[in-house]
Amino acid sequence: MSRLSVRKTYKLYIGGAFPRSESGRSYPVTSAKGDFLANASLASRKDARDAVVAARKAFPGWSGATAYNRGQILYRVAEMLEGRRAQFAEEHGGGKRTALESVDAAVDRLVWYAGWSDKITSVHGAANAVAGPYFNLSAPEPTGVVAVVAPADPLLGLVSVVAPVIVTGNTCVVVASEPSPLAAITLAEVLATSDLPGGVVNLLTGKQAELAPWLAAHMDVNGLDLTGVTDADLALRCEQEAAENLKRVLRPVQEDWTADPGIGRMTRFLETKTVWHPKGV
């Protein structure tokens, strides 16, 4: 007798839990060829609002954790991802070989960013020479809650935008790629089992146009990464909304995700704190 296979329900990832969309909506996800793959949740602006609340709640703990600890956790994410290589390759779509290569690159990307956690301060901070008897030190600090619109590349692109935001101590709300959100939710399962505190990464699946403007306008969001926004009008509108509370904005870019990422994505969402300490001479 043949067995009925158990199919996965793709839900959102908010505050370490996997809720359905508050709106109860979903949308069909198809492969590049047009075959039906699964239904994904169609997040509403209220889900985005809840995700921001979760991200804000997680911020003090995550930004207060030692850089060493954050690096370890990111490395742990890479370990768990490695263990699910085959599953990701299957959900990735495209040729099997390119899919596997992409998954491997995503694992490597996580390890690369994990290594940066305790080095970014040395590279991006400074001991400043000042005209007075002071130690003058500048240190980078995370900016807060960052809203990220992820690019179309389902796994490598997603990892490449999320890792640099969280490794420095920010928390984030991510709008996954609309046509290929399945890998994002599977990545959420990896994150949920990698000691990453709930709420540090919150993943929404749905329409960019429906979610991004609300996140861009949200007064409790401190940074906005528009990497995945393809519609120029939408990007412009988001940038204008973001100006209201002076969010740090990363404009839409076409990036080659296989290239060396550099540290620009990390430094974009850092603030600099400068301390003047009397020398006592």
Binding site: W214, H218, N245
Partner: peptide
């Protein structure tokens, strides 16, 4: 205002 408010304000 039509935008979600934040506790900073």
């Amino acid at each position: 205002t039509g935008r979600y408010a934040g506790p900073d304000y």
